[in-house]
Design a protein around this nucleic acid. Structure first.
Lengths: 202, 202
DNA sequence: CTTTTCAGATGACGTTGTCACCTCAACCAC
DNA sequence: GTGGTTGAGGTGACAACGTCATCTGAAAAG
């Protein structure tokens, strides 16, 4: 016997998984609410019982992904067999190993707010609550910040943390657009991360 | 009296300008072929006389933008009143001052090839010609490479050029998503670029 | 002048996000 | 138990979009 809440939660999970799977495999254009619904075993209108609109669904996928990445970095941070520098390399590697399309979603911000969100902000005041995805991304950045602090010290952690995060972000983007392996640069993401860490820590 | 070629060239220019303007102002979702056509004074079907499809139009906008940026960097490189380091700072600044939506287009790659392009490649052989946008982007990178070489020397130019380009790319992306001015990092794009150049050149 | 060419207009089609409305089984108070 | 409520999901419909086939008219070519 399945209760209604269980069924709904399962459907919501299935919708998120289907969206992430479709995005990872076929890119943003492959993510249609109709196909997401079909993969989750429901029809095109059902997602609107769980998410305000398509943007909200994608935002939820991003939040879920950020949480997974945060857990990954947390696990690396707790691994006693790695040095501080190796932990930093691993933490940045977590970002660099996300699939291109899913990665783009992590740093994507939805368009204008839809009707429902606008109503929600109007009712709960302009300070409703920041995006769930933004908060999840912030937790990831906190974990990364802690790893950086173990390498360069608490004092310079913010400064070098921002530099490392932005640089890793750019390395990921350039790699995903296939512009790192060309004849011009002839380098790899790993080599660039190595150079960065050596410049900062070494 | 306007000849037909002149009229067609003017329409093509108007289409490109309209697309760039719409993208810059309203983001990707505001760029519809119907609105682009209307801004250019034609109807929705006319763009297909100048571009294979919407992706080709956007690619042409990207190519045009890359060429403008290349000229900007070239002008900075020829300015005798700046030091090599100042030229490098200026060249990276050219990238960082592109509007968010237009910037995203620069590093965007269109989806699957459409029918017409596929036919073209099939007729002209698999080695038709690489994307016009890719070639324009490569020319920009050549200019940047020359600026970097004047700072770190010819030998290390490729290595540090890749690092600078990827890092600047990431700084731009994080700034555009509004994640640099937060309480967590409290830094600016300029400060990060400064740190980078000081680490490499200083 | 006749014919060809080609930029542009127009109608149509399939797909998509979204909403209003309907259904029906799980839930809840009594 | 029973009757009313709730809420997940299905369905029809609509507007907007990219795209194509077809038509038109004027510039170019002969």
């Amino acid at each position: 016997m399945v209760t209604r809440a269980e069924s709904a939660a399962a459907t919501r999970r299935a919708l998120l998984d289907a969206a992430a799977s479709l995005l990872d495999a076929g890119g943003p254009e492959a993510v249609t609410l109709r196909e997401v619904g079909a993969r989750a075993g429901v029809t095109r209108g059902a997602p609107y019982r769980h998410f305000a609109d398509k943007d909200s669904l994608l935002t939820a996928v991003a939040a879920q992904t950020w949480e997974r990445l945060t857990d990954d970095v947390h696990a690396i941070r707790a691994d006693p067999s790695r040095s501080a520098e190796e932990k930093l390399r691993g933490a940045l590697g977590v970002l660099l190993h996300v699939g291109p399309h899913l990665y783009q979603l992590l740093f994507w911000q939805p368009g204008r707010l839809n009707r429902l969100e606008r109503l929600h902000r109007q009712v709960c005041g302009p300070e409703g609550d920041p995006d769930a995805a933004s908060r999840a991304a912030e937790r990831f950045q906190d974990e990364l910040l802690a790893v950086v602090a173990d390498v360069v010290g608490e004092k310079d952690a913010r400064h070098y943390g921002a530099l490392l995060l932005t640089s890793a972000h750019g390395i990921a983007g350039m790699e995903h657009s296939g512009q790192l392996g060309t004849d011009k640069w002839q380098t790899t993401a790993d080599a660039l991360v190595d150079t960065l860490i050596r410049m900062i820590a070494g």
